[in-house]
Design a protein around this nucleic acid. Structure first.
Length: 201
DNA sequence: CCCTGATTCGC
DNA sequence: GCGAATCAGG
């Protein structure tokens, strides 16, 4: 693989969005994160502050690299929000894609709901065995409460709480190898058809 | 251990 | 220019 214009463009885009070198490498394929980092440096876009750095701009200091195309005519975004990265934009990373799609059957039905207060009835809740449910409650106490952006292939992607509020996070515990959830959540997410049928009203 | 970016240096 | 190996850190 070589750095075609297209690939470089993807690299630039993702890097400016705050994606990690390894994520970019996966997206591009055929390259390692080292290659990505190396390229990033060669392109001279090492510091990702380009987007918007509301920081109390260091006056003097040593913030004056060779090139000064700082473009002072910046439309001054929103001084408030400290640039929450690419959260609002479309599915960017594989993790997001996985979550949005249906790699995560049961619980996702809930988190995909737009955000009305009265959440619709949750059939899934009735179909989960009491035992599994109990252990889940237990695990959720020790969940890492990670955000969407913190999900990786090895973190449990079980959503906890109401997505409509800030009382929402992902389990984040180490996931079972090859599965999207930790052991406890795998237990409630993947059930034998027979078990679900038997429990049905 | 998992992960991050930074740097070096033979190719 | 490229990127594996390595370093330094969370």
């Amino acid at each position: 693989m070589s750095w075609t214009d297209e690939r470089v463009e993807t690299l630039k885009k993702m890097w400016s969005e705050g994606q990690s070198a390894s994520q970019i490498a996966k997206e591009l394929g055929g390259v390692t994160r080292n290659a990505v980092i190396g390229k990033v440096h060669r392109l001279g876009l090492s510091n990702r502050a380009a987007a918007a750095a509301p920081e109390k701009a260091e006056p003097a200091a040593k913030a004056a690299p060779p090139k000064r195309e700082e473009a002072p005519a910046e439309p001054a975004p929103k001084p408030a929000a400290p640039a929450p990265r690419a959260a609002a934009t479309a599915p960017v990373n594989p993790t997001m894609a996985q979550v949005v799609n249906n790699v995560t059957p049961l619980p996702l039905r809930k988190s995909i709901v737009p955000a009305g207060q009265p959440l619709p009835p949750q059939p899934s809740a009735n179909e989960i065995s009491p035992e599994a449910l109990a252990s889940v409650r237990e695990v959720e106490k020790s969940s890492k409460k990670i955000s969407l952006m913190e999900l990786t292939e090895r973190t449990c992607k079980w959503p906890i709480g109401d997505p409509a509020t800030d009382e929402f996070w992902f389990c984040g515990l180490p996931s079972t190898p090859g599965k999207p959830y930790c052991e406890a959540h795998v237990g409630v997410a993947f059930q034998p058809m027979s078990a679900r049928r038997d429990r049905r009203r």
